[in-house]
């Protein structure tokens, strides 16, 4: 049984249908990437999984339990962490307070997890008392990921972690995603940066105007002509 299953999920914004029947699954331990152009519905998909949006039809199962009608904090409570698009750290809370907010639902100690987050992102431990809003873009992304890890999710949803970051930082963040996955966290990664996402992921889905149009192993997608033309440009795929 897949860890996360979306079965024919539809989402509407008023009269506009943003998702027109998305079906996908993520197995435990995988890194799965969801590719697509702007407006394809990638962010909508993640926000629907994490309970920030309600599907108008279809089912979402996490470890066999339906979660499509659960409020966001309950979805988080059963082990789905969400790093929202555009980082969204709490700008006026310190790094430490941001991380503590991530563990908001956990009762008792969170020293261990925080220790692990600081191991993954040493720069955050150097800036513990600095305010979230004063961090650089890359550091904010790290903080957003760290904050999501604080709830000890078994599945983490990452929404465009490479957005607006320098290539060097992107590479670093992707390394850390691999490391988080090695720790045993399943990853569903939404990306526009298709080349890097497909190298990191085991499998991928391609979303176009609200529907899944392709799904395959990452390696196959990486060499697929249509994917290369649409998302990789002509040369990058070979690089």
């Amino acid at each position: 049984m897949a860890m996360l299953e979306l079965q024919d999920v539809h989402v509407k914004y008023g009269a506009v249908e943003a998702l027109k029947g998305v079906t996908l699954e993520v197995n435990e331990g995988e890194i799965v990437t969801l590719l697509g152009a702007n407006g394809a519905g990638k962010t909508t998909t993640l926000r629907t999984i994490s309970g920030l949006l309600r599907p108008s039809a279809g089912r979402i199962l996490f470890e066999g339990r339906p979660i499509d009608q659960m409020p966001a904090h309950e979805v988080l409570g059963i082990g789905v962490g969400h790093v929202p698009e555009g980082r969204r750290v709490f700008p006026r809370m310190s790094v430490q307070e941001n991380l503590e907010m991530g563990a908001y639902q956990r009762k008792g100690g969170n020293k261990e997890v925080m220790q692990r987050v600081f191991e993954l992102f040493p720069v955050l431990s150097e800036r513990k008392s600095q305010e979230g809003g004063t961090l650089s873009g890359g550091e904010q992304q790290m903080l957003a990921i760290g904050r999501a890890l604080m709830s000890r999710p078994r599945l983490i949803l990452l929404d465009e972690p490479s957005m607006g970051l320098a290539p060097l930082i992107v590479a670093k963040i992707f390394e850390i995603i691999a490391e988080i996955n090695d720790d045993g966290t399943t990853v569903l990664l939404v990306e526009q940066n298709a080349a890097q996402a497909l190298k990191l992921a085991g499998r991928g889905y391609v979303l176009e105007t609200g529907s899944i149009v392709m799904s395959d192993d990452a390696a196959t997608l990486l060499s697929d002509d249509r994917v290369r033309a649409a998302y990789l440009g002509e040369d990058i795929g070979a690089a």
Partner: peptide
């Protein structure tokens, strides 16, 4: 948390 960023607050389990 809600005052500073409501979406982030919801995503953090508030």
């Amino acid at each position: 948390a809600i005052r500073e960023d409501e979406v982030a607050a919801a995503a953090s389990g508030v």
